[in-house]
Write a protein that binds this DNA or RNA. Structure first.
Lengths: 343, 343
DNA sequence: GTGAAAGCGCTAACAA
DNA sequence: TTGTTAGCGCTTTCAC
């Protein structure tokens, strides 16, 4: 059906291997035959069969990307598209293809990863998330298959390469921003502590408070998944404390956004009554009311770095495990404001 | 390196072809040898090399998904993740892998698509967007390669299969909702008219107005990309019209969201002074202030249907071109309200 | 029921 | 500089 290397060879009056050599630009081929072969390829509309090539060179020039195994709502988070865009941009540049696995749960993900690896469909893998005792990571580690993780591993940190932000410092920085504005009672809202990212951000928040010798109490810390009614109540509860917060560090822009709107409904408005910060600097956070002060974690770059790392690892299995920290930046907008002197 | 069909054959004391037969469950194999072979596979940890298989059967069990060639900001739109999730869920179920192409521009996309097709990396392709005179579609059409488009083709509508919403009716429905609430001066805001979706939504809006014998004037129609300062001005201009709008049909949730916040800044609040509707029913639109009345276009299902169609087309090249319309649903929330009697 | 053999399209020693 | 040859791992007639 399709035109093969043999057809080209015949047309150009050379052997198939010569054609192959021309393609790979390997060994010295006379300029004459080279031209002749290239002409034949063009005339016949030849395109190499990547499958056949992969089979013999035992490499696919493809990388598998494993999307997080998550609930539908979280998947709408722009974080993943943005990450993917970063990965894709470098992959394209490096001449790699992208295989995608969108598992519904860990089990499914694991199955798809095994299929990719065992089936020789990819040379390396990028994990866009991990969970505690992740079977996917286990598998990849024992199979000694090249992979990199985006985010912090929950175990064996030194044995695998991963790219992450310094979330502790980032959170410390944004908390300090609030402290600098005169706030003393600062709450923290984040999703489940199981997520490593949330843990780090909570940690940084606490550190900043401690360093400033400000009160830190578990009452000021709320864990929230999706702002359902129970969770809304927990947030509102903060304002019945003896010293209600005048500021909040929130671990995600979208969450911040939800909290701002929710509080507005009960007459607490941002930034007049409360300063609120986010994380991620999504495109959205410039459109919110008020525009959100947040931490830009450079999601795109996270993807680029991850892509770079897998490719390195694929090209040289002996590449050591490394940790890449993508720098962050505080973006000041109008959701935070200097604390008015209390009456 | 890896264990092959030959190793299994040796271990089970059969020929390689028998092993193959067992795998494919083809031709009658005695239960005895079947068991023996399966045992050997398990013991050796055998996994078929998908590449090798693809080479001989001339099919990859993989589908390429082409992400839109777009600016970074738009890519953060949850629409695409959500679509991808729909596609992925069906593909996984059907045992297909997903190849992803994230082109930076049309040129790059085209290159990646050619690579996929010529390189025999995929059996079919899903396009998540198309542009006017799309070279990717041209290529796919003349190559007679199985593909389906999400959204409406700008040309050759009857020759290709695509899945879409009935955006005209959807827009008509949501406009009627506003009319039913007593609004008479209704504006339309959408992105560039080049996008087929926007065109359809504009069309539906006009139809509804006409049917209700309400005034329709180009002054009430604003095209907006990303709410930059010029665009904000254009929106504000609407309120210096002799009859300023009391309601707006906006072609996208995120845009609605931006407009609501922008208007709030200039003292026009939703829904008190203006009723606003969106499109898409993103997860976000429940968290906005006010919660957004919008059209749920069932993005996930759009993805599922597209996936179904390519697979059908791959399995049977003679499958006719079809059009799948995913139903929509108006979701009433609090961004729209009955028009107060004018003073 | 099972196996021998040919071949998918390509690469890579090694010869010439 | 070019061609010969032997696979890569798998499927699939077709004969036994």
């Amino acid at each position: 059906m399709a035109v093969t290397i043999k057809d080209v060879a015949k047309k150009a009056n050379v052997s198939p291997s010569t054609v192959s050599h021309v393609i790979a630009d390997r060994s010295r081929i006379s300029l004459d035959t080279k031209k002749r072969v290239q002409k034949a390829m063009k005339q016949l509309g030849y395109h190499p069969n990547i499958n056949a090539r992969s089979l013999v060179v035992r490499a696919t020039q493809a990388i598998g990307v494993v999307m997080p195994t998550i609930t539908e709502t979280i998947f709408q988070h722009p974080f993943f598209s943005e990450l993917l865009r970063g990965v894709g941009s470098l992959m394209h540049q490096a001449g790699y293809s992208l295989y995608l696995s969108i598992g519904g749960d860990v089990q499914q993900s694991c199955k798809e990863v095994k299929r990719m690896v065992y089936g020789h469909q990819v040379d390396g893998i990028i994990l866009l998330s991990s969970c505690e005792a992740d079977p996917v990571i286990d598998f990849l580690m024992t199979a000694n298959f090249p992979f990199v993780l985006v985010g912090k591993p929950s175990i064996d940190e030194c044995k695998m390469t991963y790219v992450d932000n310094d979330n502790i410092t980032a959170s410390k920085d944004i908390t300090n921003h609030l402290i600098d504005l005169g706030h003393q009672y600062i709450a923290f809202i984040g999703s489940s502590i199981d997520i490593a990212v949330t843990g780090d951000r909570l940690h940084g928040y606490k550190q900043a408070l401690k360093l400033a010798t400000l009160p830190t109490s578990p009452e000021y810390i709320v864990h929230v998944e999706c702002l359902n009614s129970g969770e809304r109540k927990a947030v509102k509860q903060l304002f019945s404390l003896r010293n209600p917060p005048t500021a909040m560090v929130i671990a995600d822009d979208i969450l911040s956004f939800g909290v701002i709107n929710m509080l507005d409904e009960i007459g607490i408005s941002c930034p007049e009554n409360i300063s609120i910060t986010g994380f991620n600097n999504l495109y959205l956070s410039e459109m919110t009311r008020p525009r959100l002060t947040t931490v830009d974690i450079h999601i795109f770059n996270l993807g680029v770095q991850a892509a770079k790392c897998v490719i390195e690892k694929v090209k040289d299995q002996d590449e050591p495990a490394k940790r890449i920290i993508v720098p962050h930046k505080i973006i000041c907008r109008s959701s935070t404001k200097r604390l008015d002197k209390r009456v």
